[in-house]
Amino acid sequence: MSKAAMMETVDAVEIDYIELDDIIEKDFDQDKENLIMILQAIQRHYNYLPKPALNYLSTKIGIPMSQIYGVATFYSTFSLEPRGRNIISVCLGTACHVRGGARVNDKLEEVLNIGDGQTTEDKRFTLESVRCIGCCSLGPVVKINEDMHGRIGSDEIEKVLDQYE
């Protein structure tokens, strides 16, 4: 996400339709079968799925908005609301669960004062629970953006969060 885009608010996010065209046409051949990957690319670009972009996509590849909305809400990766600058994925897979992942999650919710899937007011963090990221030996695991924090105790949460602006 670009700096300029980050400063925009929800309603005013600017869509660069030329760029959007590039994603739809060049990267994914304007192919209906690539809908999920196109949505992933749009989300990578804007950090969420802005409605104007989806409207454009709908007309461009000829999939009704209802179907796009169906896909965007069915799969857990997609977000229809802007997310924070840092995405916290707290693993609640079985291995992390039996090793106290829920305690870590409780602590995160308490410190950030948000629930699962929510974003802090200052847009610094979004908290998402995930089911297993395949690092079971390091459980409980918290992934922040691309960084993995393994064997994390609930008392270490605040120190870790301080590393992210």
Partner: peptide, 12 residues
């Protein structure tokens, strides 16, 4: 699409 929590052999 290895989805079972606690299984990661396919990833490996």
């Amino acid at each position: 699409d290895e989805g079972d929590p606690g299984a990661y052999m396919d990833r490996s």
